[in-house]
Design a protein around this nucleic acid. Sequence first.
DNA 1: CTGGTCAAC
DNA 2: GTTGACCAG
Length: 291
Amino acid sequence: MLRKSTNCLMRWPTFCLFIILSASLQGCLPGAPKTVVNNTAPTKDDNLALGNPSQAGSSNPDNYLITRPAYSLSYNRKRAIANWVSWHMSAAWKGDVKRGNDFRPDPDLPAGWYAVKTSDYTNSGFDRGHLCPSDDRDGSPADNSATFLMTNIVPEAPRHNREVWKSLEDYSRQLVSAGNELYIIAGTDGTGGTGEGGQTSRIADGKITVPATLWKIIVVLPVGSNDISRLSTNTRIIAVSIPNRQTAADKPWTAYLTSIKDIERMTGYDFLSEVPKDLQRVLEARIDANL
DNA sequence: CTGGTCAAC
DNA sequence: GTTGACCAG
């Protein structure tokens, strides 16, 4: 009953189309259309697609843009922590690369700047808290390793990091497993947190500021391309602002839901700046419904 | 690199 | 029980 493929092409075109798509044979068949169906496979997209919230660049040391394949961030030299980190998240970034734990100074800071090292956090009473999590970047060794550069790390109250912040990270990866992709921006604000040793403004002999607040904005999109055009008034927005205190973990992350507008008021940043103004207004006022 | 802890699932 | 993510030495 098996026919040669040329017969198949004439007699069972639908069947052959299936073969073409599933076995990636397009390149073997000259003349086959390049795009037969919409591409719904998740991709790795621009980490800053929704905008650069603080207009970070190369001129201001306290708003210094660092761009990598894994994420983009604004670094604050005076505070020795990031103002924010922005990254795209989809199943395309996921894999089975083992967590590297290779915390190290960021070699991409300008010459002459102090580069935070992992031992600056030892015995500080604060965790080396990821902004862009290791587990969001386990698709390649290079991407995972990039999350351990100390510019992506902030002094985070241990219970904050391991409990309430982690549970939101886990939830966001569940959203990805369920068929969404995400744009995530996480950052810091204010000075002074409460770690294992009590209230602290700075660690490492004053070199590193302990942020008072960690905030995060998650834009939830269906898997696809043309990112900006996929935002609508129905787009789900998850925004939280969580004090950097051990006791913050006494409540679930849903207790800290807020609006993007509130985070803009707190930080002075402008989020979703690539999105049309009218749509920004709607989405930035939104507070996610409690789950 | 190893062993230990803690919380969540 | 296992896993993930810290810590210290």
